[in-house]
């Protein structure tokens, strides 16, 4: 079942100014309950614009966004409900921290939802756990934390609203490999524990392969490719044609194919590649 459906979305950026740039040229896409979707595309492909439509921050020139089958733009109330049902976490979210304690900052969203104090407290404690930090952090100032910790707190602030869909715009940007892996694990765990849909943007194809169930590729404001990770990554050449990086293992496979080795489907994980190479060697050995 789809949680959010985007119907033929058209949105022109900064209309009328000399710096006009077509951002979305009729995008239709469904996001299903419980899946992790990765949104990829080069800078300026319209990814961020699409994300900001999913929770109604932007209003399309034409087309519609449906949350659980109902247009989010129907009324002021439906729009506000959508804000809380679809949690959007921007790029470098740690830059939006402002409160004197981690607790207060995470509580900002739930407070805006006008929840009871007990419910707010429960949510703050739950969400700090989801992002892998201990409750000791709640009384600290967010500004005393390390970069990676700040980011987790900021994400907790969105999770605390208990959105049915969690959207993260480049959640791993600027993190080192360790911080990146931890964050990817967090996304996966959150999805498994809550069963909520997660949509995230990434430039790193290996990150995408590690957690996403499905991949959507945008190019110049249009939907270029979509499917499971396998389906999309097996079209490595097409991805490269769109100016996107392919996972490194995929590029090893593309090079191997060019060199005349037939290894079957294009693999993108170390394990898959290992198996495929060994299988091909066995076959070669048998001949």
């Amino acid at each position: 079942m789809s949680v959010i459906s985007v119907k033929n979305l058209i949105y022109g950026y900064s209309k009328g100014t000399p710096f006009e740039k077509g951002a979305l040229k009729g995008v239709s896409v469904d996001f299903r309950q419980g899946e992790i979707v990765a949104l990829i595309g080069h800078t300026g492909s319209g990814k961020s614009t699409l994300l900001q439509h999913l929770n109604g921050l932007l209003k399309p020139d034409s087309g519609d966004v449906l949350f659980e089958g109902k247009s989010i733009y129907e009324s002021k109330k439906s729009l506000r409900d959508c804000r809380f049902n679809v949690g959007l976490c921007f790029q470098y979210p740690e830059q939006q921290l402002f409160e004197s304690t981690v607790y207060k900052d995470i509580a900002f969203g739930p407070t805006n939802m006008k929840l009871s104090d007990d419910e707010i407290k429960k949510r703050v404690y739950d969400s700090i756990k989801y992002v892998g930090l201990s409750a000791d952090y709640l009384e600290k100032s967010p500004f005393d934390l390390s970069g990676g910790e700040k980011r987790r707190v900021a994400i907790a602030g969105v999770i605390a609203m208990e959105p049915k869909v969690l959207i993260l715009d480049e959640p791993t940007a600027g993190l080192d490999p360790l911080g990146k892996n931890n964050l990817l694990k967090l996304i996966k765990d959150y999805n498994e524990k809550t069963g909520n849909t997660v949509i995230f943007v990434s430039h790193n194809m290996d990150d995408v392969a590690a957690v996403a169930h499905r991949v959507i590729v945008l190019s110049d404001g249009e939907l270029a490719l979509q499917g499971t990770v396998d389906e999309v990554y097996s079209q490595g050449e097409k991805l490269a044609g769109l100016g996107l990086d392919v996972p490194e293992i995929t590029s090893v496979f593309i090079e191997l194919k060019k060199a005349g080795f037939d290894l079957g489907d294009t693999e993108y994980t170390i394990n898959g590649a290992k198996e495929a190479i060994i299988a091909s060697l066995m076959k070669g050995g048998a001949v």
Binding site: N55, R80, R83, C89, L97, N112
Partner: peptide
């Protein structure tokens, strides 16, 4: 946009509330 996504409301309420609502923008 980020604070709006967390339910911040900059458009309604009385003057004092509106000024308070600016804090999440100005501190960051």
């Amino acid at each position: 946009s980020a604070q709006k996504a967390r339910g911040a409301d900059f458009e309604s309420g009385n003057l004092i509330n509106r000024i308070k609502a600016l804090l999440p923008i100005f501190v960051p």
